[in-house]
Amino acid sequence: MFKRLMMVALLVIAPLSAATAADQTNPYKLMDEAAQKTFDRLKNEQPQIRANPDYLRTIVDQELLPYVQVKYAGALVLGQYYKSATPAQREAYFAAFREYLKQAYGQALAMYHGQTYQIAPEQPLGDKTIVPIRVTIIDPNGRPPVRLDFQWRKNSQTGNWQAYDMIAEGVSMITTKQNEWGTLLRTKGIDGLTAQLKSISQQKITLEEKK
């Protein structure tokens, strides 16, 4: 169930391209415009997507990853294993993690069937560096609404905000991946996880038929 919630949630996290980005210092504006741009692209490019579902990787690479804190999220997933990894191991892992996100997020976007969304009203940021933004996803086919909290983090150097995690039903996506990959990290280390991520990233994206 959580895996499905995570995939549905990713439908609204794909941010804007650099040329049309919203105010990078306001995570609420980023979330709002990102959702609108993403849904528009999914709707307008269905012919290309249906002809070649792996085209979704391109959308992810162009529109999402430049505005997601990939390395920060990847380091959180590694936890204690990050500090013990060599620079070469980290570089290989982050490259594999990025390719994994292209496949995983692309597969999530393949679930698009006309969903709509509501974003919580903007709250004062103050001096906060981590801000959760509640998004409610509404399914046109009558499924119950899904309420999610996207975690946005302020870059201490640039002042810009980027998304790095999502919490559904009190469970963090980062925590879920830590639990899912924990045994592999304990037995085969970061190299074993890197190899698995490379394998997963090679899987073809498949479209979910409308139910």
Rank of each mutant, 00 (worst) to 15 (best):
M1T: 10
F2V: 09
F2I: 00
F2M: 03
R4N: 06
L5S: 02
M6F: 07
M6K: 01
M6I: 04
M7F: 05
M7P: 09
V8F: 04
V8L: 04
V8E: 09
L10W: 09
L10E: 02
L11F: 00
V12A: 06
I13W: 03
I13D: 02
I13C: 02
I13K: 07
A14W: 04
P15H: 07
P15M: 11
L16N: 02
A18L: 01
A18T: 11
A19W: 06
T20D: 14
T20K: 15
D23N: 14
D23I: 15
Q24T: 04
Q24W: 03
Q24C: 05
N26I: 00
P27D: 07
Y28K: 04
K29T: 09
K29D: 01
M31R: 03
M31C: 07
D32P: 03
D32A: 04
E33I: 00
E33A: 00
E33D: 04
E33T: 14
E33V: 09
A34I: 07
A35F: 14
K37P: 06
T38C: 09
R41H: 11
L42H: 11
L42R: 05
N44G: 02
N44D: 14
E45Q: 15
Q46V: 08
P47I: 05
P47F: 01
Q48T: 08
Q48N: 07
I49M: 04
R50K: 07
R50V: 11
P53N: 00
P53H: 00
P53A: 04
D54V: 00
D54R: 11
D54F: 01
R57I: 15
T58V: 00
T58P: 04
I59T: 03
I59K: 14
V60A: 07
V60I: 05
V60K: 07
V60E: 08
V60Q: 05
D61Q: 02
Q62V: 06
E63F: 03
E63D: 00
E63Q: 05
L64H: 03
L65A: 06
L65F: 04
L65W: 03
P66R: 02
Y67H: 01
Y67V: 01
V68R: 15
Q69M: 01
Q69D: 00
Q69G: 10
V70Y: 01
V70E: 05
V70A: 13
K71S: 04
K71N: 05
A73R: 13
G74P: 12
G74S: 02
V77R: 09
V77G: 08
V77E: 14
G79E: 02
G79H: 05
Q80E: 02
Y81G: 03
Y81V: 04
K83W: 06
K83T: 02
K83L: 05
K83D: 07
A85T: 00
T86E: 12
T86A: 04
P87F: 15
P87R: 12
P87H: 04
A88W: 12
Q89S: 12
R90F: 12
E91K: 01
E91F: 08
F97W: 01
F97L: 03
R98H: 04
E99K: 14
Y100V: 08
L101M: 15
L101R: 14
K102C: 13
Q103T: 14
Q103M: 05
A104P: 06
Y105H: 11
Y105I: 05
G106Q: 15
A108H: 09
A110R: 04
A110I: 12
A110K: 00
M111C: 08
M111N: 11
Y112C: 07
Y112P: 09
Y112R: 06
H113G: 09
H113K: 11
H113E: 09
G114V: 12
G114L: 12
Q115G: 10
T116I: 07
T116Y: 14
Y117A: 13
Q118T: 07
I119V: 13
P121K: 04
E122A: 05
P124Y: 06
G126Q: 15
G126L: 14
D127P: 01
D127W: 00
D127Q: 10
K128R: 03
K128F: 06
K128E: 07
K128S: 04
K128A: 06
T129R: 06
I130W: 06
I130P: 04
I130Y: 15
P132Q: 13
P132L: 08
I133C: 13
R134D: 13
V135D: 02
V135P: 06
T136K: 12
I138K: 13
I138R: 00
D139A: 08
D139L: 06
P140C: 12
N141P: 08
N141M: 09
N141W: 13
R143S: 11
R143M: 15
P145D: 03
V146G: 07
R147L: 09
R147Q: 15
L148D: 14
L148Y: 15
L148V: 08
L148W: 13
D149C: 13
Q151Y: 05
Q151C: 03
W152E: 01
W152G: 05
R153L: 06
K154E: 03
N155D: 08
N155W: 09
S156I: 03
S156Y: 12
S156T: 06
Q157S: 07
Q157M: 13
T158N: 00
G159I: 00
G159Q: 03
N160V: 08
N160E: 09
N160W: 03
N160Y: 14
N160S: 09
W161E: 07
W161H: 11
W161P: 12
Q162S: 05
Q162F: 08
Q162K: 11
Q162W: 05
A163W: 02
Y164G: 13
D165T: 11
M166E: 06
A168P: 09
A168C: 12
A168T: 15
E169Y: 08
E169N: 01
V171R: 07
V171Q: 09
V171C: 09
S172W: 05
S172Y: 02
M173A: 07
M173V: 09
M173S: 10
I174Q: 06
T175E: 14
T176V: 12
T176E: 13
K177A: 05
K177F: 15
K177L: 13
N179L: 14
W181T: 15
W181V: 11
W181A: 09
G182E: 06
G182P: 09
T183E: 08
T183N: 01
L184R: 10
L185K: 10
L185G: 13
L185R: 07
R186L: 10
I190F: 12
D191R: 04
G192I: 05
G192Y: 13
L193N: 06
L193D: 11
T194E: 14
A195I: 12
A195R: 12
A195T: 09
L197V: 02
L197D: 07
S199E: 11
S199D: 01
S199I: 15
I200Q: 14
I200G: 11
I200Y: 01
S201N: 00
S201I: 11
Q202K: 07
Q203S: 15
Q203N: 15
K204N: 03
I205A: 14
T206A: 09
L207G: 10
L207H: 01
E208R: 11
E208G: 06
K210E: 11
K210C: 01
K211R: 12
K211Y: 09
K211G: 11
